Amino acid sequence: MKTNLFAALLILFSASTLAAKPDHQLPISINADNTQASIRDNTAVYVDNVEVRQGSLLIKADRLEINASAGKGQEIFIFSGTPVTYSQLLDGERPVTAQANEIRYDIASRTLTLTTDAELTQSGSLVRGDIIRYNLERQELTAGSEQNRRVTTIFTPETKENP
């Protein structure tokens, strides 16, 4: 049973989904109403109406904390809000969207970790749980839930248009 679910999830979130020009090679743009940074500690906090763009990647949040103490290319972005939203266009203009109360973006591993009321949607199908880890480069995810709750996956069949 677990093998069937894994295979279904792999099919759902695979399909050669790399961005046209890799988003991770483009500059990261951050806009917010307020910013506070510590050059010495390599940290920054952005508050209110936070928007982060990197190519087609867009994350919106109430607050963003960045820890860059590990060096360039190793930054950790921690977004919080109710909810934080993520969207990105993948190969073939297929959108992926997600939301959670917290999203952690690890630049080095290109991984999003969504926690608390997490859900991710691609091609009309949905995965919902307490925590979802999503690798942007490999388009792989793991999902889990706590306290007797379960992970929910909803597959939406593709429909053919009539000529």
Results as ranks from 00 to 15, higher is better:
58 L>M: 14
23 D>P: 14
52 V>W: 15
131 I>M: 07
31 N>R: 14
88 Q>S: 09
94 R>N: 07
125 S>V: 00
137 E>S: 02
68 A>L: 09
148 N>W: 01
77 F>D: 14
21 K>E: 12
80 S>M: 11
138 R>F: 04
147 Q>T: 02
128 R>Q: 10
70 A>P: 03
37 A>P: 09
53 R>F: 01
133 R>Y: 02
76 I>H: 10
12 L>Y: 11
19 A>Y: 06
74 Q>S: 11
77 F>W: 07
81 G>D: 01
72 K>N: 14
140 E>M: 14
76 I>P: 09
146 E>F: 08
13 F>C: 08
161 E>W: 03
147 Q>F: 14
45 V>H: 08
92 G>D: 09
160 K>N: 00
27 P>L: 12
109 S>H: 08
108 A>K: 11
5 L>G: 00
72 K>H: 12
66 I>E: 10
15 A>R: 13
90 L>M: 13
87 S>A: 07
133 R>G: 06
76 I>L: 12
27 P>H: 11
113 T>L: 12
121 T>L: 08
37 A>L: 15
20 A>P: 13
157 P>R: 00
104 R>C: 06
66 I>C: 04
80 S>Y: 07
25 Q>M: 14
93 E>G: 05
34 N>M: 04
163 P>Y: 03
134 Y>A: 04
40 R>A: 13
108 A>S: 06
44 A>D: 06
96 V>E: 12
69 S>N: 12
49 N>G: 10
5 L>H: 04
5 L>N: 04
117 D>Q: 14
54 Q>V: 04
83 P>Q: 07
77 F>N: 13
56 S>C: 05
69 S>F: 06
84 V>S: 03
149 R>S: 05
146 E>N: 15
67 N>L: 01
111 T>K: 10
115 T>F: 00
37 A>H: 10
157 P>D: 01
39 I>L: 15
27 P>K: 09
44 A>R: 07
131 I>P: 02
91 D>K: 15
139 Q>W: 04
46 Y>D: 07
8 A>E: 04
132 I>T: 06
47 V>Q: 13
50 V>S: 05
34 N>E: 13
23 D>W: 05
41 D>L: 10
61 A>G: 10
62 D>S: 10
143 A>P: 06
10 L>M: 07
161 E>I: 04
66 I>K: 07
24 H>F: 08
48 D>G: 01
74 Q>I: 01
104 R>I: 15
143 A>M: 12
81 G>N: 04
52 V>M: 13
31 N>S: 13
29 S>C: 05
99 Q>Y: 02
113 T>R: 02
84 V>I: 01
67 N>C: 04
57 L>E: 03
112 L>W: 01
92 G>V: 07
121 T>K: 01
163 P>C: 00
63 R>F: 02
38 S>V: 07
54 Q>D: 11
114 L>I: 11
74 Q>N: 15
69 S>M: 06
156 T>H: 00
151 V>G: 09
143 A>T: 02
72 K>T: 14
105 Y>V: 08
120 L>R: 02
152 T>I: 11
100 A>N: 05
96 V>T: 14
119 E>G: 02
125 S>E: 07
71 G>T: 06
52 V>Q: 14
19 A>W: 08
86 Y>M: 00
15 A>F: 14
161 E>A: 11
24 H>L: 03
8 A>P: 01
147 Q>K: 15
116 T>P: 12
70 A>D: 05
57 L>F: 00
115 T>Q: 11
56 S>V: 11
36 Q>Y: 09
